[in-house]
Simulated scan of single mutants.
Amino acid sequence: MMVKRMTWVARMGAVLGAAAVLAAPVQAKEWKSVTVALEGGYAPWNLTLPGGKLGGFEPELLANLCTRIKIQCNMVAQDWDGMIPGLQAGKFDVLMDAISITPEREKIIAFSRPYAATPATFAVTDTKVLPKAAPGAPVVKLTGEAKTDQPTVDSLRKQLKGKTIGIQSGTVYTKFINDSFKDVATIRVYKTSPERDLDLVAGRIDASFDDVTYYAALMDKKENASIVLAGPKIGGSIWGPGEGLAFRKQDADLRAKFDTAIAAALADGTVKKLADKWFKTDVTP
């Protein structure tokens, strides 16, 4: 979605079905403290540091938000599959795990305003396939409308004609790659992004496409030194509104508090500062 946590889209249907029957009753709360669930294993969004403490972009942003609204936030690590049911059952009050805001999820849970909107891009090991991304180049905004997006897509189609592109299954990126390139390139679909990355490094595919924040963590590893970002960073409404905090629908008052804090953190540059630190790119929505 990873984006965006787009890799979770395929798993969401089963989780939503389970969550629907676990809704907690409405309760008035003063919200002096909340329990926030993060996976703790999705670097650099969130990760578990030596000693068990949670770190990364989201824990640091969360600490800032909670200070602004004067609420004590207790972070806990939770596997993704238990997050939505746990939220609905009252085990957690908030979820923060690079969760993309989608219409399907909004049927079950409520979202804050987005605190990030992550662009995606190609990666290659041979810049003859696509030129290396220019440092500081602006994000190209796509809408999902063919007429509006056509100039950018046509340019990429020419460069990727006859190439093999690797993409993870079950993501919005999968649909974009298939719709835009399947008639000019070979599309190879992988169960996981790491499996695809191995083939990219080995030369079995020519390019991959994924979230820029995923690549930020990927390329810090020695075995991936040959991988470089290539072509434009692609963002915009084509990927949806972005990533937000998740709440029970009845906790509108708590959501409103975090909306206010997120707006302030965006306005004063806090989100951009943390994004530059952890992602090396601006992900402000």
Rank of each mutant, 00 (worst) to 15 (best):
M6P: 04
M6L: 10
M6W: 04
T7N: 12
W8Y: 13
V9M: 14
V9A: 13
A10G: 05
A14E: 15
V15T: 15
L16Q: 14
L16I: 15
G17C: 10
A18P: 00
V21A: 15
A24G: 13
A28G: 09
K32E: 10
V36P: 00
L38A: 04
G41W: 06
A43K: 06
K53N: 05
K53Y: 01
L54C: 02
G55K: 04
G56K: 03
E58H: 06
A63R: 13
K70W: 07
N74A: 11
W80L: 13
G86L: 10
G86F: 08
L87H: 03
M96I: 10
E104H: 05
E104Q: 14
I108Q: 15
I109D: 14
A110G: 15
F111V: 10
S112I: 03
A117M: 03
A117K: 03
T118H: 12
P119K: 09
A120L: 08
T121S: 11
T121K: 01
V129Q: 06
P131K: 12
K132G: 06
A133L: 13
A133Q: 11
P135S: 05
P135A: 06
P138F: 12
V140A: 10
K141P: 00
L142F: 01
T143A: 07
G144M: 02
A146F: 09
A146T: 09
K147M: 03
K147T: 05
T148E: 15
T148F: 11
P151M: 02
L156S: 01
G162S: 06
T164S: 14
I165T: 11
G166Q: 10
Q168S: 13
S169Y: 04
S169F: 04
T171A: 06
T174W: 05
D179N: 14
F181D: 10
F181G: 09
D183W: 00
V184K: 00
V184R: 01
A185K: 01
I187F: 03
V189F: 01
V189H: 02
P194A: 14
E195H: 01
R196F: 08
I205W: 02
A207K: 02
F209G: 06
D211G: 14
V212D: 09
T213Q: 07
Y215I: 00
A217I: 04
K222Q: 14
E223H: 10
V228N: 03
P232V: 12
K233C: 02
K233R: 13
I234G: 02
G235N: 07
G240A: 02
G244T: 08
L245G: 07
A246Q: 11
F247S: 02
K249T: 00
K249D: 01
D251T: 06
A252L: 08
R255I: 01
R255T: 03
A256P: 02
A261Y: 00
I262W: 05
I262V: 09
A264V: 08
L266K: 13
D268F: 09
G269L: 10
K272Y: 06
D276Y: 07
W278I: 09
W278D: 09
K280T: 14
V283W: 03
